[in-house]
Amino acid sequence: MHRFANPARFQRLATAILPWSAGATVVLLVVGLYFSLFASPPDYQQGDTVRIMYIHVPAAWMSLFVYTNMAIAAACGLVWKHPLADLFAKAAAPVGAGFTAICLITGSLWGAPMWGTWWVWDARLTSVLILFFLYLGYMALVNAFDDPQRGMRAGNVLLLVGIVNVPIIKFSVEWWNTLHQPASVMRMDGPTVAAPMLVPLLIMAVAFTLYFVTVVLLRLRAEIVQRRIQTMRLTQAAE
């Protein structure tokens, strides 16, 4: 309870930011969708499937971006015991997992017409799949304790262990893949990204980032409300 002064300042900040981030998300999503669906040419090799890229690649970026942010927040939470840092990691996890799921599903939908199969044990797909498991593990751990504080603290340690492991997993999976994959089936380079494709890609990436900011601010708010409910229930029970 003594730490609630800080969340109060956060609430004011969130109230100031939210309308702008929400508005910008909507505008950029509309513009990004227009560019990715209408105002960009189909790829000369991949045809219109290249339009999946404008969802798939930003989602892949976000999946790593969110995890990195969560790990930074976890470090801040462990070192400075900043209550908002703990809450941030918890609030961001479902959003990050959502982006990772989008990346996996759209990757599969892109692979079906291009490689002729829904799933290949390609290095990138495989490491994103493992990242997805890391997200799920974190979410399960945070919610597994009766004391939410303890859950978030344990989650922070797991995030730091995870962020050390992400490069190792990435490297080992790539190594495993080059050893085992008969290097013929597919062109993994994807389309060469030309300027008309770069525009929708970047707009969508910014739109996804703003979406993330908006939803995390809302989730943080919900978390703070939950904590206040909890403390009120406790004090009421004590009275």
Partner: peptide, 9 residues
């Protein structure tokens, strides 16, 4: 659930 992904390397 937590440990198996970390075992992969």
């Amino acid at each position: 659930l937590l440990i198996l992904p970390l075992y992969i390397p």
